[in-house]
Amino acid sequence: MRVDFTKMHGLGNDFVVLDARARAVPAIDAAIARALADRRTGIGCDQLILLEPSETADFRMRIFNHDGGEVEACGNASRAVALLHGADASVETSGGVIHVEPASGGASVDMGKPRFDWDAIPLAYAMDTAIMPVGWDGLDQPGAVNVGNPHVIFFVENADAVPLDEVGPEIENDPLFPERVNVNVATIENREHIRLRVWERGVGLTRACGTGACATAIHAMRRGLADREVTVTLPGGDLVIAWGDDNRIRMTGPATESYRGSFEWGDFA
């Protein structure tokens, strides 16, 4: 069976998108997702995105990380899907229903409401998620936010100086986080600008992470360190994150279609 795909990216965070809304594709499991995501023997991507019909929204988006694990949310993929869809839409995800709106050169996404309760992150045991009494290798007192998926955020003097490729895997897989966690290190430049690097759960170091930008901005706002709208600069570029009076998060930024192609399903199954 030949299957069409669209290769897309948001600030360098790249995706293979399979559109099964009109034409079904065979069932995807972790092994197939890993094979397609492999940059040497597959198409290559950070995440495999599957679009399907939905009974509760305009369509459903499923997200498989590079390691094959299925996750709840992906902000950059949401913007890419908005661009691909070409119109305002409600999108069902495992992390809840989000709303996407294409814009010039990208999209704006209503990412829903942040969650701060320890068991909503989730953590292994109760603690204050605004200033957590824990630390790893010089990184301490982080905050935790769930924005559809779990994030831990450290504010540091220089985000570029943190050996995130070393400490990121340790924190991601710490028993404190029963579903693992995305690790963010951020430097607050001023109340309207944050610099950020992300170790993404199941992916590793990434050029951009939309949910990481949302979680980091919300944590800074929650701590009184940033205004309710900020620019978050990642290695791949800028995202604008706003936290409205209705408690909903809006993320705005670019998305790009790279190319289209097809593959033989049996080569990866």
Rank of each mutant, 00 (worst) to 15 (best):
T93S: 04
A120S: 14
Q47L: 03
T129K: 10
N247S: 13
A27D: 10
A161C: 02
D19F: 07
T233I: 08
F5Y: 15
A217V: 11
G202V: 00
V198R: 02
H66R: 15
E166F: 04
N247R: 07
S54C: 02
A33F: 10
G168M: 05
L50W: 05
L48Q: 07
L239Q: 12
N190I: 03
S94L: 15
E157N: 10
E72F: 01
G143K: 09
D38S: 08
E257P: 00
A130S: 12
G236H: 07
L123P: 11
T6P: 00
G244L: 03
S262C: 04
V145Q: 14
E179K: 13
A30G: 09
D58Q: 04
E157G: 11
S78R: 05
L18Y: 11
P178C: 07
K113A: 15
K7W: 09
G86T: 11
G135Q: 11
M127T: 15
I32S: 00
G10W: 04
E52R: 07
V109M: 07
A77E: 11
F5R: 07
N76R: 01
D58E: 10
D245Y: 01
N149Y: 03
D29L: 04
R228H: 14
R228T: 15
A213P: 13
R23H: 13
V167S: 12
T93G: 07
N184A: 10
E72R: 01
V230N: 08
F177M: 11
G105H: 03
V183E: 12
V71D: 02
V16T: 09
A24H: 05
V17W: 12
E264T: 14
T129H: 10
T187F: 09
F15R: 05
M251E: 09
V25K: 00
A144F: 01
D88E: 15
M132A: 13
S94I: 06
C74M: 08
R23I: 12
R39E: 09
E229W: 01
M132Q: 10
V17N: 03
A73G: 02
I49A: 03
E157T: 14
G95F: 07
F64M: 00
M61P: 01
C45S: 10
S108A: 15
D227I: 12
R195T: 13
E179R: 14
A22D: 15
V17T: 05
E92G: 00
I153Q: 09
L18W: 12
I241E: 11
A87P: 04
D14Y: 05
V3C: 04
N173M: 06
F154P: 03
I218K: 03
M111A: 13
R222D: 10
D19C: 01
D117E: 15
R60C: 09
V134N: 08
L225W: 11
A22L: 08
V16S: 01
Q47G: 04
V97F: 06
G202K: 02
T93C: 04
P102M: 12
C74H: 12
G253F: 02
